[in-house]
Amino acid sequence: MTNDLATTIATVPDGTGSGSPPADADLATMLLIRHFELALLDLFARGELHGTTHTCLGQEHVPVALAPLLGERDYVFSNHRGHGHYIARFGDPAGLLAEIMGREGAVCNGVGGSQHIFRDRYLSTGVQGESLPVAAGVALHLKRHEPGALALTYIGDGTWGEGAVYEALNMAALWRLPLLVVVEHNGIAQSTATDANMAGTIGARAAAFGIAHMRVESISPAEIRTVAGPLVDKVRHGAPLVLEFVTNRLGPHSKGDDTRTDAELRRVRAADWHAVYREAPGFAEADSLAAAQVAQLVDEVSARQPAVWSTA
């Protein structure tokens, strides 16, 4: 039944993986996310944030690259490491920061916090793999009632340990659902390296279901769109896709819980898009601008009243 689904295994052919520097608007969003995440770690270090958070430092280019490939009718399911996903979709760092800080203007009135966000057709959940069957259900709804729209779900490499992933992939392939699974493969699940967690490969696992798979190493939003765009279009017509990004987690899993060696961290930092593009024209100015914007945002949101949760 699924034999006619094309299975593609591709690596974006780019020697450095960097491509040309991002366009101004893309760079601005990537930097906004970068400084947003750095500010969160700083707020935690100063004891001004409650609970926990998971930053996406090093992965910012993924949702920025995908944003223009998505339409308003598309659903996005995010995970615990979702601040970049939210900012790339809505450009609303204030609502997100207010949510994380429990202040007025919080997207979910402070109830959901960092990893339980719901706005329009964007939704994040805090349990690994849980969103895949839900996204499959939404994709089923879209296929029946809003053909052409898709459900995207972001997961990590560690998420592939969850059985829910395979139950959902099976149904997505069987029922030809417009489901796009974006894997941010950063090589580490909390503190455990992927090679201690995963037998085989993500590509082979997708292939087992007859689901197309593309592996992307580029950090260039324009290049990513060029290669992924046509396959994303196919998703809209019922060909589910696993789009795997080789990426780096620059920061700790949550706060100060990084047990990687110095050598490993040096390797990760050298491959970071911020390091790769920092000499590009206009980068330094854009970086300063984003830093200043986030600093102002932190001041502004910190001064707000506590969020109010009305259950009525």
């Binding site: 895949l132 069957p133 939404v138 089923l140 139950e167 069987l174």
Partner: peptide, 23 residues
């Protein structure tokens, strides 16, 4: 009426997705 694979967790998730989307 959708007869499903043997995937209780997945089925309830799919149903929750339908409900989430207004079905």
């Amino acid at each position: 009426v959708i007869t499903t694979p043997i995937s209780e967790n997945g089925i309830v998730g799919v149903a929750a997705g339908l409900a989430m989307a207004g079905d």
